[in-house]
Amino acid sequence: MTTMEVTRFGHAAVLVEAAGTRILIDPGAFSAPATFALTGLDAIVVTHQHADHLDRDRIGSLVEANPGARLLAEPETAATLDNWERTGPDLTFEVGGLTVTGVGSRHAEILPALPRVGNVGVLVTADGEPTLFHPGDTYEYRPDGVDILALPLSAPWAKVSETVEFVQAVAPRTAFPIHDCTISEVAYGIYWTHVEGHGGVDDLQRLPQDGVLAL
């Protein structure tokens, strides 16, 4: 395998760089300001419509700064945006040297009384590169062959036992946390130590904001 670089930009925002291609996933309201200063992107991908995954106040300027970027979003989300392509389960998109494949179709349940919005996670891969999986907001879908898992660590729809079971089922070579702005620093270990102790993944990387994982 050659080198894939993954950079966290806070909460669910992840920049994937491999095969000469740069793909940004889920630039949301909790993302670091540096997320919206990125240039040279080949694609921007949004897994679903919630504000912590799509900052509608800042997405326009990011798109303008990356005029060559392919814009990919889950169907319900794409319908509310101008000139975005709709992703979907098993749909593939060739972006530079990488392939983006949609995984799943719906958000995890928050409350039975609330409708479940669309959510399409993504696999990012290429020949000779590791395969990265960003699930968006769900543990429901568990694709095979995942080398790097972007792991949602805390959410209104999740509990620790589900987090650990999801990691075990996906069985990645490497995992790092996303969706963790809902956890205070003093309480972070309550969540992360269970993943460390029971997830079954040898290479766990608790990346700081702007931390880079190279594989």
Rank of each mutant, 00 (worst) to 15 (best):
T47G: 07
L114I: 14
I59N: 10
A19F: 03
E76R: 09
V100I: 15
V212T: 14
R70N: 06
H198V: 05
L81N: 11
W157N: 08
D82W: 07
E94N: 06
T101C: 05
G20W: 11
F9S: 05
L204C: 14
A32V: 13
P143S: 03
E17S: 10
R22F: 13
K159P: 07
E17V: 04
S154T: 11
G68R: 03
I44D: 00
G199I: 03
E109R: 14
V212R: 13
I148H: 04
N66E: 07
E5Y: 09
S31H: 05
V146H: 00
V103S: 01
Y139H: 13
V45T: 01
D144M: 10
R206T: 08
Y188P: 07
V186E: 15
P115D: 04
A214W: 04
R58L: 10
A108I: 07
E140V: 06
I148Q: 01
A113M: 14
A171F: 00
Q205S: 13
P75N: 13
A158W: 04
V167C: 08
H134R: 06
A171W: 02
D180I: 03
D127I: 07
A171D: 06
R116E: 13
L71I: 04
T182I: 07
V170C: 02
A69L: 06
T99R: 10
A32N: 11
I190F: 13
D147S: 05
E162F: 00
F36Q: 10
V14M: 02
P135H: 05
L132T: 03
A65H: 08
P156F: 10
G96M: 09
A158I: 12
S154K: 12
Y188L: 13
L54H: 12
H53V: 06
W157K: 10
T99H: 01
K159S: 12
D82V: 14
D42P: 02
V103P: 00
L54R: 09
N66Q: 08
T77A: 05
W84V: 11
V195D: 08
H179C: 13
T21C: 11
W157Y: 06
G68H: 04
R56W: 13
Y139F: 12
T87L: 14
Q209V: 15
A32C: 10
V16T: 01
V117Q: 15
R58D: 01
Y141K: 05
D82Y: 12
A78N: 11
V45W: 00
G96V: 02
A155P: 05
D210A: 15
T21G: 08
G60R: 04
T7R: 14
P156C: 12
L123D: 02
G102N: 03
I190G: 12
P152H: 02
Y188G: 07
V146T: 02
T21I: 12
R106N: 10
F176E: 05
P27E: 05
A214Y: 04
P130M: 00
E64C: 10
H194Y: 11
N83V: 15
I148K: 02
L123M: 07
E64G: 09
A169G: 08
E140S: 08
L123T: 00
